[in-house]
Design a protein around this nucleic acid. Structure first.
Lengths: 151, 151
DNA sequence: CAGTATCCTTGCTGATACTG
DNA sequence: CAGTATCAGCAAGGATACTG
C-alpha cells in the first residue's frame, strides 16, 4: 500500500497497544495504516458521500466530483476490503450496485466530523498565517524566532 | 500544495455548512484543504510527535520512524507556514532548533486523537475484515451480497 | 546539528478502450 | 450501468552529497 518495506509476516497486534496505546510512529503498527488510508483523498470523500445512506456507483461518481472511474472503483474496493463499506449487487439488468457504510464505516464518521469541525474553527487562521508567511518571504524578511543561547 | 487554482480571497465559511453540512468536494471549502494537509502522512505524525512539548529536529527524525530528512524538513516548513508549528533557532554552535506546537497546532491534537482512538477501537475489525476478504479471494469464493431485484 | 541541492526511482493517477 | 485492462505522464518521496 505505502510501498514501504514490510516484514512480510502476520503482525502481532499486542505489540503496539500495550497499555491501550498505539504507536503510529512504528511503521508496522496498524494505526499507521489508518493514516495511509485517509491519506488517499478519495477515501475520506467517499466515506463522507455515503454518510446519508446507500449510493449507487454512478451517484458516487457524480457526487465525488473529479474522481475517475478507476480511482472510485479502487477506493471502493479498499473500503470494502477493510469492512467499512458493503457492496450490494442487484440481480437485474441494467446492473445496479449499492454501496453502504457498515457499522464500522459509520463509526468513522464521528472522528471525521471532528476533523471537519476543527477545520471550520481554525482554517481561517491557517489561511491567514499562510498569507502572512508568503508575504514575508517576498520581502526577504527573516521573521524567524532566534533565541539566546541562554548559557 | 495541491496546486489547484485558488480564488485568492478570504472565504465565507457559511457557504459550505449550510444546514450543518460541508462540501469537501468544493475546492475552496476549508474542509478540502484540511484533507490536503492531513493527506501527507508525515504531517499528522509530526504534529503528534510534538504533543508533549518542544522537540529538536534530530529528535523528531528519530521519533517519526521512517521519515527522511527531506520530508521532515518539508513537512515542518509547511506546518510553520500554516501557523501550526513555531520554529525557534538558538544562536549557538552546534546549531539547535526547536519546534513547538502553536495554540492552533495544539488544538488540532484533539480531533487527531479522535482518529487515533477510532483506530485503536476498530483496527482489529478492519484487520480481520481484510484477512477474511483476502482469504475469500484466494478461494475464488464470491461472498458478495446479491440482493433480489425486489420489484 | 540542521539543514540545502540534486538526481532518480517508484507508483499514483487519469485517459482511453473494451466487456457483461 | 458498472465495471476491467492497459498505457503514458507526472510528481512525491528517498538516497546521496555538500554546506553553515
Amino acid at each position: 500500500m505505502s510501498g514501504g518495506p514490510r516484514r512480510g509476516g502476520v503482525v502481532n497486534q499486542d505489540r503496539w497497544h500495550a497499555g491501550g496505546r498505539w504507536d503510529p510512529y512504528d511503521q508496522d503498527c496498524p494505526s499507521r495504516q489508518l493514516l495511509d488510508r485517509i491519506g488517499d483523498r478519495w477515501t475520506v470523500l467517499v466515506v463522507l458521500a455515503l454518510a446519508d445512506g446507500p449510493r449507487r456507483f454512478s451517484e458516487l461518481r457524480r457526487s465525488v466530483g473529479g474522481v475517475s472511474q478507476k480511482m472510485l472503483t479502487q477506493t471502493l474496493r479498499a473500503l470494502e476490503r477493510d469492512g467499512l463499506v458493503r457492496r450490494t449487487v442487484f440481480a437485474q439488468v441494467p446492473p445496479r450496485v449499492d454501496y453502504t457504510l457498515t457499522d464500522t464505516g459509520t463509526s468513522l464518521l464521528e472522528p471525521l466530523r471532528g476533523l471537519l469541525d476543527w477545520s471550520s474553527a481554525h482554517m481561517d487562521d491557517v489561511l491567514a498565517s499562510r498569507a502572512r508567511h508568503d508575504e514575508g518571504e517576498a520581502d526577504g524578511a527573516a521573521h524567524e524566532r532566534v533565541a539566546a543561547s541562554g548559557g
